[in-house]
């Protein structure tokens, strides 16, 4: 019983974080058609901005939302500086891999210079612990498990029920036709990056509440999010969400039965298998488009 509870809980928790990260990657890929390698850095920066605001004396309830908004701005600026100027180039996918990696590296080292290498922690969403099904869990983790699906549902509603969301989905499918109905394609690209960055920043705040933060804290979640989007397919946002939870459960089960040591190898085994059997991802249709 407690084994099952532990795997279930671990899977839901890790899956939530992966989903928040992977959705942002998918959002940027579907709208702009580029892969953002500075996504992990957004996560780190969100956590550090939140930490700094708390350090300045703001209560967490104010600091966290402000940090998320700041991250939206960071995402927009990054898009305007290292992605937008390259749009229209034939080899944009590869070039943007390089520019976003470079920007990520700069920001990462900038954070190291500003905040130093000493590990930091930000306040938990809710303090305290509980025991569920024989497993001791922190209320912070429970809060993440509950909040994440709400945020993802809100994102889904935004994309599918509002005119602005409709415009984002349209840009994802046909850029020329989007211009011809009068959409502001540049602004929509910025918006996609801003949403992705704020979700990553929020994931960073979640993570900084239960684990020590460091300037490189985003690289492992980025790697996991990469596995998730390859596994689930990057051409929609619902695919990566389901995939994130599946990978979360898989990881939890692996570390329970085989130990942490084997878990990355098994995860990459799944990745390789997916690429061999169904390279477009298990939940993907063969086209690009948000839904």
């Amino acid at each position: 019983m407690s084994a099952l509870a532990e795997i279930l809980f671990g899977g839901l928790f890790q899956g939530s974080l992966y989903a928040m990260m992977a959705v942002g990657l998918a959002l940027v890929w579907t709208t702009i058609g580029v892969f953002n390698f500075s996504h992990g850095v957004f996560m780190m920066l969100g956590a550090y901005v939140a930490w700094q605001l708390v350090e300045l004396g703001l209560p967490a309830a104010v600091a966290f939302p402000v940090a998320v908004v700041v991250m939206a701005g960071v995402g927009w600026i990054l898009q305007a500086s290292v992605v937008r100027p390259l749009i229209g180039r034939p080899n944009i996918v590869l070039v943007v891999v390089i520019t976003t990696l470079a920007a990520g590296s700069l920001i990462e080292n900038g954070a190291l210079t500003i905040w130093g290498p000493r590990s930091k922690q930000i306040p938990a969403l809710i303090d305290g612990n509980a025991t569920i099904g024989g497993v001791g869990v922190s209320l912070h983790q429970i809060a993440i498990i509950v909040i994440t699906p709400l945020i993802l549902a809100a994102l889904w509603m935004f994309l599918n029920r509002t005119r602005l969301g409709l415009a984002l989905r349209a840009v994802a499918q046909n850029e020329d036709a989007s211009h011809l109905v009068g959409l502001n394609v540049t602004a929509l690209y910025g918006l996609a990056f801003a949403i992705a960055a704020s979700l990553a920043g929020l994931a960073g705040i979640f993570m900084g509440g239960y684990r020590f933060m460091s300037p490189v804290m985003g690289s492992d979640p980025l790697l996991k999010a990469l596995i998730v989007v390859v596994f689930g397919g990057i051409s929609s946002i619902s695919g990566p969400i389901f995939a994130a939870y599946l990978i979360g459960f898989f990881e939890a089960a692996c570390s329970y039965y085989f130990g942490l040591y084997w878990t990355p190898a098994l995860l990459f085994g799944v990745l390789i298998l997916t690429l061999m059997v169904r390279p477009e991802g298990i939940f993907a249709s063969r086209s690009r488009g948000l839904a």
Binding site: R169, A170, Q173, N174, D176, A177, G289, A291
Partner: peptide, 10 residues
Amino acid sequence: PQGNRLFPDL
């Protein structure tokens, strides 16, 4: 535009 490509998934 030519070719009615439009928005295939809308």
